[in-house]
Amino acid sequence: MNTLDPNTWIDSYSDYLYNYAVVRVNNTDIAKDLVQETFFAGLRSAKNFEGKSTERTWLISILKRKIIDYYRKINSKKGKAEVRMNFYESGENEGSWIEERVPQSWNSETEKNIENEELKSQIDVCIDNLPEKYAMVFRMKTIQEFETEEICKELNITPSNLWVIIHRARTQLRSCMEKNWFNK
């Protein structure tokens, strides 16, 4: 039977929980808050701990719920989500490129130069320009390379939902990289 010992939680689990949160939300302040909320929620519900899982597994399951809550919060956020760009026509020509958003050829010199620190920070800038939920799903799938199934389970979304987000994120990123890097 496992037992809980909250006095040791921070020394034993804070790094593990913090790393788990950072790779998902990509923001150190939000990750710190999530870890704190997890420990507090753990204290409050300690009486419900049945000892079937380890302390760490139990705390992670709390953190997972906090991450879903966070995703729901950014998902419902108005404002930034609404500035997302449309690249395709609707109505009669539905699904065709909007003329002024058509991809341009890239300057071949910059295209070759891909081993570059500046390039990596430009990618971060472009990802940060995305609506928050696109950035989160894109990073989890592309940068952290999580399985589709895992992301869907963790964020409680469907695969088709995930692919729509990935598509929009990448289309917007391509356009941002074109303006700020390839054809600068």
């Binding site: 790094d15 710190k32 081993e115 940068i143 390379e145």
Partner: peptide
């Protein structure tokens, strides 16, 4: 993105 991913995954975050 793949190169970026390799960079990021080398890194473990600690408090």
């Amino acid at each position: 993105f793949k190169r970026k991913s390799l960079d990021c995954k080398e890194h473990t975050h600690c408090m």
